[in-house]
Each structure stands twice: as C-alpha cells, then as structure tokens.
Amino acid sequence: MRFVTFASPSPGDAPRVGRLDGGTVLDVGFDGDMVAFIEAGAPIAAERAVPGARLLAPLVPRSFRDFLAFEGHLLNAYRNLGRAVPAEWYDTPVFYRSTGTTVTGPDTVLPWPSYSAQLDHELELAAVIGRRCRDVRAEDALGFVFGYTIWNDVSARDVQRRELPIGMGPAKAKEWDGSNALGPCIVTPDEVDLDTLELEVRVNGERWGGDRISAMHHSFGDLIAYAAQDQTLLPGEVLGSGTATGGSGLELDRWIQPGDVIEMEAGPIGVLRNTVGTPNRKDH
C-alpha cells in the first residue's frame, strides 16, 4: 500500500491520512496524523475518494536518524575533499539525529537558508519504524519497518565545512525549516524489493546520479539494529540510508541553483519533486 498525508481542497480542513489508489487519494477514515495512524496499527475504515487533494510530507517524524551506508558516495565525496574514507566506517554504521519539525513535502519550494551560499541535495531512501523495537538483531530488524519513502536531505555545504572539524554535528548545515523533504508517499514493505530498488536524482530533467539499494555497505537491518542497541525506537521514527552514489552535487562538483527542479525517484514510491528557493542573505 501507498500511504500519504494530504490537504483537502476545503479551506480550514486539517491534514488527513490517506491511501493512493493509482492517482486517486482515498481518505482512510482515521482521525489523527500519520504517526498516530502507524502507532495504531494502520487501521483503515470506510475509504472515500478526495478530488483535488494535495499531497503533503507523508509524516512529521518523531525524529530523523541519518546514516552513511553507500561506499560509492563516500569515495566520491572524500576524493573531492582530498581525504580517505575512515577505516572505522566499514565496521560502524554511525548516524546523526535531527528533529522532525524541519520536514517539508513534495512539490514545495526548498527554503535556502540565509546563512549559506552553497546548497546541495542528497538522495536517500528512508525507512519508517512501525513498531517499538529494542535490541533487535539485524536479520530481524526489517520486521519493524512500516514502510519506505524518499528523503532529500538538503545540506548547506559551506556551513558543513566549518562545523565538521569541531567534531559535533552536523548542526546548522542540516537543520532549518524545510531542510528535510520527504515523499511523496510511504510504501509498505510488501511492495518494495530492496534487492532491486533503484534510486535516481534528476536536476532540471538531467540525471545527476543514483544507485541500487543493494549497494549499501550497511543494510537497513544493520542500521536499525545499531540504533536500537539499549534504546527503544518508536513508531514514526525515520532512519535514512545516507546519500546514494552520485546523489549529491558534492560528488560531482556541480551545485544546484535557485529555481532548479530536483526530482528524486524510487520505484513504487514515485517521484519526490521540489524547486530550489531563492537565497535570502542576511548580514552577520
């Protein structure tokens, strides 16, 4: 199934949880947001079509955890930075955390933060946790996934270069209103084949990069198991694969510009499309 959060054409209506049937949005009859829907076991009451519905971010996550699982991305990025991939990366699927309030959805304008002059897209697949889990084995961890969505982890690269040597973060390089685009829907695991699923990013219609999920050095099972050591993961938490090979401008030394249209595609999940906003520089 493909689940969405949508806005109805009626002014003043609160966002609702729905299901996509082809190109039609069906209201599933649940009074609550997507996280509550997932936590309740995804109950579907009487469905009704909603003409003119507009898709929003499929959920506002309880949290984001973002990993670095694609060796190809790291090799490309580190080569451009004149560095080698740390040996520890091959053994440890580390992550950083961010807040779900930074999320935006499909067909929105990505805000360009006032404190950055160099913005970058990052193509990722995200797993949405469906059930509480703690101390799970990697081989069992996918059983706790509610579904998958596309994540554009937008990055302020100039800020990131200043922050990372300090040894904390990334912080403001990854976190401002609208810095995390999710969508267009959450697809349940029965419709996603992780062995064959391919990710692709296009900028203004031109393919910039992409890779198969099977190329991840650390699998989603590994990521979930690592995060869940001595810690309970809750329904509605999001874990990202990290950037797919060729999925960022950093790797190519090509940089998105205001007005560019970024399209990220992943099989049955569809296309996450956003337009890059205009910088609003401030004096500091």
Score class of each variant (00 low, 15 high):
F3N: 00
Y226R: 08
A138D: 03
D91C: 09
T188V: 12
E263Q: 09
R207W: 08
R134T: 15
D153I: 09
N204A: 05
R134E: 15
R161K: 13
M216R: 03
G246D: 03
A42D: 10
G147I: 04
L194W: 06
D27F: 04
E88H: 15
W208C: 08
A7K: 11
G246A: 05
G130W: 04
G72N: 07
D120H: 04
A45V: 11
S8M: 00
E88F: 15
V203P: 01
R65W: 02
D140N: 08
D190M: 08
D107P: 03
F144W: 15
F70S: 02
I166R: 09
F95S: 14
E124G: 08
D195M: 06
V35S: 11
G277H: 02
A266W: 03
V103Q: 07
D260F: 02
G205A: 07
R19P: 01
R137D: 14
G167K: 04
R132K: 14
E251C: 06
Q257D: 05
I150H: 03
N280P: 02
E263A: 04
V276G: 00
A7G: 11
A77F: 12
D21K: 00
P43D: 12
L272F: 04
L182N: 12
D120L: 00
E39C: 12
N180S: 15
P170W: 00
R162H: 14
S214I: 01
Q257T: 08
S116D: 01
L182W: 11
F30A: 00
R2T: 05
L56T: 03
N204Q: 06
Y148C: 04
P258M: 01
A87H: 13
L223W: 04
V103W: 08
T104S: 15
V261H: 01
V85L: 09
I213E: 08
L250N: 11
P235R: 09
G29R: 04
P61L: 01
L20G: 02
R207Q: 13
G242A: 07
A138S: 08
G205R: 11
V238P: 05
R97Y: 08
D260E: 03
V238T: 08
T275P: 00
E198Q: 11
A40R: 15
G167P: 06
L250R: 04
W89G: 06
F37Y: 15
E124V: 09
F64W: 02
A7H: 09
N280S: 14
A69S: 13
P235H: 10
L164Q: 13
L56D: 00
D177Y: 13
K174F: 14
W151N: 07
M216G: 11
M168I: 14
T278G: 03
N280F: 11
T245C: 04
G267C: 12
A228T: 02
R79D: 07
D33C: 07
A49Y: 00
V192F: 05
P106A: 04
F144A: 09
M168A: 14
V25M: 01
S114M: 01
F30R: 01
D211S: 14
N204H: 06
E88Q: 15
Y115T: 05
L194R: 09
